[in-house]
């Protein structure tokens, strides 16, 4: 009795097998009722929408500010969700498989360990992606509704005041720039990219840490360091000229080598302020994120490949 599979190859990264594990992880998370969070998000968006801001300085300034507030609140919540979720899910799933011995049954099948890791992280990222997509959709609908409303309001006000056509056009341009633009979608994608990196970091940590809590805390710490290290490097560079000690300078250099520079993702804030996202920026950030995700996944594999259970 020869098994039909003995002839199929068990090389690494067989797409079908990775997909099976990824989809399974996705289902697992969905059935953990993760999407309930989305209803909370919907509430926040709606609440932010009805939040009236203090009127001041005449209408030429509020319009833009209102949209900015709506965007920054929603983007903030999206980012919060993406980062918290990706860290918690990645840090929980691997130890859970070990603890429940489900990992034994998976690795006892002809499944290379790399496929297992890639499948897990892909499943988590898929869920983050889908969640962000849904939130983005809701956000875009609310924002475009709000923008149109504002446009009608402001322009009729301006016309009533007898503004020149040029002034009205300028106003219109300013409002539209704050509405749902492609740049805005780009910024949501940047949130995804950033959470992909931090997810890969959590994966790496969870391959050698023995405690879920440790993984979660350390991942958040790395997230913070990632934001800080560029500032710190600039700061110490500035003070180094004034003669600060060599130790701190070396340390910050090391930090900036090891940890990802999350400051680059502050483009999200710029987009909220209405600065257009360039295609070039999206491509560079995607490339960089891909580099990090591949790097950290490979390192995870390096640790995981001969791990014993």
């Amino acid at each position: 009795m020869t098994s039909q599979n003995s002839k199929t190859s068990n090389r690494w990264l067989q797409p079908r097998r990775v997909t099976v594990i990824a989809m399974h992880t996705f289902t697992q998370l969905v059935r953990m009722k993760v999407f309930y969070f989305l209803s909370v998000f919907a509430l926040i968006v709606i609440a932010a929408n009805f939040l009236d801001l203090p009127q001041f300085n005449g209408p030429e300034a509020i319009g833009v500010g209102e949209l900015q507030m709506l965007k920054s609140t929603c983007m903030g919540v999206m980012k919060l969700f993406a980062v918290v979720f990706v860290i918690a899910a990645t840090a929980l799933l691997l130890p859970k498989d070990v603890e429940d011995r489900t990992l034994y049954t998976i690795l006892a099948k002809p499944v290379p360990r790399l496929d297992y890791l890639v499948g897990k992280i892909a499943g988590v990222l898929l869920l983050v992606f889908v969640s962000l997509l849904l939130m983005d959709l809701l956000m875009t609908v609310v924002l475009s509704f709000r923008t149109n409303h504002l446009l009608v309001d402001q322009l009729s006000w301006a016309e009533a005041r007898g503004w020149t056509q040029e002034a009205i056009d300028s106003e219109r341009r300013d409002i539209i720039a704050q509405g749902p633009t492609w740049s805005f979608q780009g910024a949501v994608f940047a949130i995804f990219l950033q959470s992909a990196i931090i997810g890969a970091v959590a994966l790496l940590l969870s391959t050698f840490s023995t405690s879920t809590l440790f993984t979660i805390i350390l991942s958040f710490l790395i997230y913070l360091i990632g934001h800080f290290q560029a500032d710190a490097a600039d700061y110490y560079k500035a003070t180094a000229e004034a003669g600060s000690n060599a130790f701190t300078t070396t340390m910050t250099k090391l930090l900036s080598l090891i940890f990802p520079n999350f400051q680059l993702f502050n483009v999200i804030d710029a987009v909220i302020e209405g600065i257009p996202m360039t295609m070039n920026a999206i491509i560079s950030l995607t490339g960089l994120s891909l580099f990090y995700v591949v790097l950290y996944t490979m390192l995870s594999w390096f640790v995981f490949s001969d791990k014993e259970f």
Partner: peptide, 30 residues
């Protein structure tokens, strides 16, 4: 591991899957 099946001691499989889904998942892995 092509030709081996393993049942660990006190196995806990994925609680969120049904019986059929569990077998389907492991079958797909093979």
């Amino acid at each position: 591991r092509n030709d081996v099946g393993f049942l660990p001691e006190n196995p806990y499989f994925y609680k969120h899957l049904t019986g059929a889904e569990t077998l389907r998942f492991y079958g797909k892995l093979c």
